[in-house]
């Protein structure tokens, strides 16, 4: 794997994770439990999509194959997607969505923080901009985990179930592969060992405050999303997300 190939993979992982989570969150529009939550979810989704655009535009340039960010987002097949498995999981109930969001936000926050000092100036700039937005995302999702966890008997039970369910998808974002290693050595990528420690400290503190039980450290972790092996959830999501640009190529309004 060359550095250019690794960089392309790396940018796709960041961009695809944002795109897919954004698409998932949009499924709440019209269904959120309260108007304020609908606005918040919509705003978070918009931030993620904006960041994804910046990552995918850069990915398209690095690839240099004449594809643009739209082609990457809307005209690739499932196996070509490099998003984390956690972001493609179904919304479930509100606790499920917030548990997924929190575990992702905590990773995203420390990841972008690390990328702010990337030797690649473009990556550092996109990360610095995104970090400001993700700071608000993390504040909100950790507040919801605590509020529901340390809430009523029912909300506590639902949040505990949600954490237990999504936990198996939380390991992948902290496990590096060849592309991660190559870019770490080049001073471009994040040190996932460091991100892992920061993530674990944040999650442990938040779950404790939420009076929730943290799943066992040696729990089985699902992996593969970063390499293009997805759960069955992604295909259905893409079918909906890509329908319009595939049915009406070049459509604009």
């Amino acid at each position: 794997m060359t550095e250019q190939q690794a960089l392309f993979e790396y940018l796709l992982r960041l961009g695809d994770s944002g795109t897919i989570l954004s698409q998932r969150l949009c499924e709440w529009i019209g269904n959120a439990p309260a108007l304020e939550e609908e606005l918040a979810i919509g705003n978070v989704a918009l931030d993620l999509l904006g960041q994804a655009r910046a990552w995918l535009e850069y990915a398209a340039e690095v690839e240099g194959a004449g594809r643009d960010a739209d082609a990457l987002a809307f005209l690739r097949h499932e196996r070509e997607y490099r998003n984390l498995l956690i972001v493609e999981q179904a919304n479930g109930n509100f606790a499920d969505t917030m548990a997924r969001q929190y575990l992702f936000d905590a990773w995203h926050y420390f990841m972008l923080q690390a990328l702010c000092t990337s030797a690649d100036e473009r990556i550092a700039a996109i990360a610095a901009k995104g970090l400001k937005e993700v700071t608000y995302h993390l504040r909100r999702s950790s507040a919801w985990v605590k509020r529901l966890g340390d809430g009523t008997e029912e909300s506590h039970a639902k949040m505990q179930d949600a954490i237990d369910e999504i936990w198996t998808y939380s390991g992948e974002m902290l496990i590096g592969d060849e592309a991660d290693q190559l870019l770490l050595e080049a001073g471009i990528g994040a040190d996932l060992e460091q991100v892992k420690q920061q993530w674990q400290a944040h999650v442990t503190a938040t779950l404790a405050e939420a009076t929730l039980t943290q799943p066992a450290e040696d729990s089985y972790m699902q992996t593969g999303g970063k390499q293009g092996y997805h759960t069955e959830q992604l295909g259905f999501l893409l079918a909906e997300m890509q329908y319009l640009p595939r049915a009406y190529p070049g459509a604009s309004w």
């Binding site: 304020e36 606005l39 918040a40 705003n43 978070v44 918009l46 608000y136 909100r140």
Partner: peptide, 13 residues
């Protein structure tokens, strides 16, 4: 504060 996010990304409610 009612919500961290308002009518647009730049605002809170």
């Amino acid at each position: 504060q009612v919500s961290e996010f308002g009518s647009t990304a730049c605002k809170a409610l």
